[in-house]
Simulated scan of single mutants.
Amino acid sequence: MSAEISILDLFLQASLLVKCVMLVLLGFSVACWAMIFQRRNALNSAQQQLKAFEDKFWGGTDLSKLYSEVSARQHITGIESLFVAGFKEFARLRKSSLSTPESIVDGTHRAMRVALSREVDSLETSLPFMATVGSISPYIGLFGTVWGIMNSFIALGAVKQATLAMVAPGIAEALVATAMGLFAAIPAVMAYNRFSHHVERLENSYGNFMEEFSSILQRQSAAEQKA
């Protein structure tokens, strides 16, 4: 409890600029933690949706029936958006008498690539902010520390007899800014690295599905043309 009171006292006694630095870092930290919880839930939900859809897709469900079921939903995300985009384009191109199996697959693949790009952009939401907080927070805290120590030594030069007790409070106030910078940066960097890896794994899974789905549609298109 005394440590909390002493940190609060150091904040209240700090100069206006150092206080602003601490408040900015506190804001970064709060915003970053909110984004961490939000991204964790979003990525876990995307992973669960991926597993559930792949189980249904590879379980022998008719593709037309699966498309009708998924496309009837108001909000389509994740791997389901790739499937809907691909099958919709496949059905549209299949009706054209000028389309060949190769052109149908190419068009379907392009449609799914667009959907994949949108989904990856959605999964990466907030990650640039975390990377920014993780990279600049220590420097912002260091700026507050340098400013506070500079003011302490300027005040020290104005007295005839200098003692450690005179500069210790000012230096302690300044060092709190560095501590807050690290407090904001460390979770941001850890979360960014973890979530980036998670997004990369999801993107690879989406890409693998896209290639496998394209192969299925190609075989189906070729069989229909022969028939």
Rank of each mutant, 00 (worst) to 15 (best):
A185I: 00
A185T: 04
A185G: 07
A185M: 12
A185D: 05
I186T: 03
I186P: 08
I186K: 05
I186F: 03
I186G: 05
P187N: 04
P187G: 03
P187M: 02
A188D: 01
A188R: 00
V189H: 07
V189F: 09
V189M: 02
V189K: 09
M190D: 02
M190V: 12
M190T: 06
A191I: 03
A191M: 02
A191Q: 03
A191E: 07
Y192F: 14
Y192A: 04
Y192P: 07
Y192I: 01
N193L: 03
N193M: 05
N193P: 08
N193E: 08
N193I: 13
N193W: 03
R194Q: 13
R194D: 12
R194K: 14
R194I: 10
R194L: 12
R194V: 06
R194C: 11
F195C: 10
F195D: 07
F195P: 04
S196C: 06
S196H: 01
S196D: 11
S196Q: 06
S196V: 09
S196L: 08
H197Y: 09
H197Q: 04
H197T: 09
H197S: 13
H197D: 11
H198Y: 13
H198F: 11
H198N: 10
H198R: 14
H198Q: 14
H198K: 11
H198S: 13
V199T: 00
V199F: 00
V199H: 00
V199L: 00
E200T: 13
E200R: 05
E200D: 15
R201K: 15
R201C: 10
R201F: 04
L202W: 09
L202Y: 01
L202E: 06
L202N: 11
E203S: 15
E203W: 00
N204S: 15
N204V: 14
N204Q: 13
N204I: 10
S205I: 07
S205C: 09
S205E: 15
S205Y: 05
S205V: 05
Y206T: 04
Y206A: 15
Y206R: 01
Y206W: 12
Y206M: 15
Y206C: 12
G207A: 13
G207C: 01
G207W: 01
N208A: 13
N208R: 13
F209S: 02
F209P: 05
F209Y: 06
M210R: 01
M210G: 10
M210Y: 05
E211K: 08
E211V: 10
E211W: 03
E211R: 08
E211Q: 13
E212Y: 10
E212K: 15
E212V: 13
E212F: 10
F213C: 00
F213M: 10
F213N: 06
F213V: 03
F213Q: 00
S214P: 11
S214K: 06
S214G: 04
S214R: 13
S215Y: 06
S215I: 10
S215N: 09
S215H: 09
S215L: 10
S215D: 14
I216E: 12
I216G: 02
I216H: 04
I216M: 11
I216D: 07
I216T: 11
I216R: 11
I216K: 06
I216L: 15
I216C: 05
L217M: 15
L217I: 02
L217N: 01
L217R: 04
L217Y: 01
L217A: 02
L217Q: 03
